[in-house]
């Protein structure tokens, strides 16, 4: 590995660390690939309510505290309301609901591989492979 690339890696790690520090334990962080720009809460709501399809939302399994809290904070809605919105989008052929992944590790892996993907995880699970684009607390 060249010195140049080594430097990039290290600076990337420091940047990731500094972003992670901004979020305290118990915060939910919205994450994207390292190249992404920060987003607003409205943008995240639009993505997870199926109003705009520019990004691919990733989801965590239903029934976990993190899942329900994320929807409450990001969209100001109970998840059953969000489910009704996606039912309409799915059964009108407009869009498929967010892809459900098993855990934070799977979300980070998918995001690192696709710059169009958006996900959310507990801030405790952050690492430099992804970038925090919004903190929900």
């Amino acid at each position: 590995m060249s010195k140049h690339r080594m430097y990039l890696r290290i600076s990337g790690a420091i940047l990731g660390l500094s972003l992670a520090v901004n979020a305290v334990a118990g915060d939910i962080v919205v994450i994207m690939a390292r190249s992404a720009e920060p987003v607003t809460k409205e943008q995240v709501a639009n993505i997870y309510l199926g109003r705009s399809f520019d990004y691919k939302p990733l989801d965590l399994p239903e029934g976990t505290g993190l899942h329900d809290t994320f929807y409450k904070r990001a969209t100001d809605r109970d998840y059953s309301q969000v489910k009704a919105l996606w039912a309409r989008l799915m059964f009108t052929g407009h869009a498929q609901p967010p892809k459900v992944l098993a855990d934070a590790a799977a979300v980070k892996k998918a995001i690192a591989a696709d710059p169009k993907s958006v996900g959310y995880i507990d801030s405790d699970d952050l690492d430099p492979s992804v970038k925090v684009v919004l903190t929900l607390n």
Partner: peptide, 28 residues
């Protein structure tokens, strides 16, 4: 891409606001 959808076959006729999901009670 995320902007365009072209469909051929038997497709929904969305005459009114909720026509396309009229059968889906859960969504209404």
């Amino acid at each position: 891409n995320s902007q365009w959808q072209v469909r051929l076959g038997r497709v929904v006729l969305a005459t009114f606001l909720y026509s396309d999901s009229r059968q889906v009670g859960f969504a209404a």
